[in-house]
């Protein structure tokens, strides 16, 4: 499988605070890779670093073989990356439909609006809603994911997409991740809800104190239960 993302010795800072201390990870085409870890372990900062959204970075981030560590955010996105942030970032001054249609095309083969509405039927019903932020939390999360599927992005960075959502919505999101994987998307999932991530991911990275503490693949999951209990308290 071709390597889509390779991160080596990644360090990142917010002002004076040193957050990432030499992260190394790789993601192959078509994989779902999950970053596990407690709050503050550096998982969100890792995704933001890939997008160039942290103040200072050092090390190496290669996307499709291209070194991007010194690139501005908009240029990184054009390598075919779709980013869904933890806070969802739905724009209150835009309608649901405007939010969905906002991101520009950054690659070939994006999903059509009809395909997206088939995948997220709630959004079809609510598309004329005047303000994107008037949607429920679950609908906003779906909108945040849906809008990056239109753009032709093939590497999706999804940050805590189940946070604060009802179990029925979480299950729906799980089914959507499976469908996206079947369609060939490569997904990096930052998740605290281990039960959600466990059946979806091909490989797992466990982060602690801004570093990768452990890595294992899905078949090894059962043998790592005790270790996960220590790292995550699950």
């Amino acid at each position: 499988m071709a390597e889509v993302l390779r991160i080596e010795h990644l360090n990142a800072w917010y002002g004076e605070s040193h957050i990432l201390h030499g992260v190394d990870l790789t993601v192959n085409q078509g994989e779902v890779v999950t970053l596990l870890g407690r709050n503050g372990s550096g998982r969100t900062t890792t995704l933001k670093s890939i997008m160039g959204l942290v103040g200072r970075r050092a090390g190496s981030i290669r996307v499709n073989g291209q070194e991007t560590i010194s690139w501005p955010t908009h240029k990184v996105a054009h390598l075919g990356i779709g980013y869904c942030p933890e806070e969802r970032a739905i724009f209150s001054s835009l309608s649901v439909e405007e939010n969905l249609m906002l991101p520009p095309q950054i690659g070939e083969g994006g999903m059509s609006v009809d395909e997206i509405y088939d995948m997220f039927p709630n959004l079809r019903e609510r598309r004329k809603t005047a303000q994107g932020t008037k949607l429920s939390g679950g609908e906003q999360q779906m909108l945040a994911m849906a809008r990056i599927l239109r753009t032709g992005a093939h590497l999706l960075l999804l940050d805590e997409i189940t946070e604060g959502l009802a179990p029925v919505i979480v299950q729906a999101l799980g089914r959507i991740i499976v469908k996206l994987k079947e369609r060939g998307f490569t997904i990096v999932l930052v998740e605290q809800n281990f039960r959600f991530a466990a059946p979806l991911a091909d490989r797992f990275y466990v982060m602690e104190h801004g570093k990768i503490a452990e890595t294992f693949s899905a078949p090894e999951l059962e043998s790592k239960t005790q270790l996960l209990h220590e790292y995550l308290g699950v």
């Binding site: 959204l53 908009h74 753009t151």
Partner: peptide, 21 residues
């Protein structure tokens, strides 16, 4: 729409691939 969105959250609009600066 880009302008209005960038007013709210310029970093996110840039993450979509728009040259906000």
């Amino acid at each position: 729409a880009y302008l209005r969105a960038a007013t709210e959250n310029p970093a996110m609009v840039q993450a979509f691939g728009v040259n906000v600066p």
